[in-house]
């Protein structure tokens, strides 16, 4: 099991959804449901701490893989992420993606936190920052209306691809 204490939150997104924590939990962990708001990407997760986490792209290939770090339905789901099949991305240290679900008045507050164990440059974070708001928005719309309207974000920005290449060569996470 990884040491969570070395991870620092770098991106934190919050949305309030008129649903129950159980509905949000299902949306975040069910392959068929996740496909509907995650732009065709399907979550596949072994429902236990230490279990395997996978995110399949719309063609069924593995886009990201990792390990379940927290499995506490319907409150907290946390897993490591290594992005695969994108030339070099899988040489980066794993990041940690955590969803916290809690009641807030009549609705449910969903917090997505992306944490890193190294001083990751903004250019690498830009990929997630262009995609996550759309995913969170889509999740909310789907749970509240049964429909989605979001526009799929484009692939990784060119500056992200460049920054990943540079980081993989220089390996700044090895320097302390």
């Amino acid at each position: 099991m990884i040491d969570v204490s070395v991870f620092t939150p770098k991106t934190v997104y919050v949305t309030y959804i008129a649903a129950t924590p159980e509905q949000v939990w299902q949306a975040l962990t069910d392959p068929a449901f996740s496909k509907r708001y995650f732009f065709g990407f399907a979550v596949a997760v072994e429902p236990r701490e230490g279990g395997a986490f996978r995110l399949h792209d719309p063609d069924g290939r593995i886009h990201a893989s990792g390990e379940v770090v927290a499995w506490d339905p319907p409150r907290r789901f946390s897993s490591t992420w290594i992005v695969e099949g994108m030339g070099g991305f899988d040489a980066l240290p794993a990041c940690l993606v955590t969803y916290d679900i809690e009641w807030s008045g009549e609705s449910v507050k969903v917090t997505m936190t992306e944490s890193h164990s190294w001083n990751v440059p903004d250019a690498i974070l830009s990929g997630g920052r262009s995609g996550w708001p759309a995913v969170m928005c889509n999740l909310k719309t789907l749970l509240e209306t049964g429909k989605t309207l979001s526009i799929a974000p484009e692939g990784p920005p060119p500056e992200m691809v460049e920054a990943v290449k540079k980081a993989v060569i220089e390996k700044p996470w090895l320097k302390r």
Binding site: P9, T11, V12, Y13, V14, T15, Y16, T111, T113, R129, P133, A134, M136, C137, K140, T141, L149, S150, I151
Partner: peptide, 27 residues
Amino acid sequence: ANLVATVKRGREKLHYLNPVPIHEIGE
């Protein structure tokens, strides 16, 4: 207004820009 999200870390509170509501307006 949900434009800033916070995370407690020990005795400190860290502040993060939360663009999700602005994204909702855009959509």
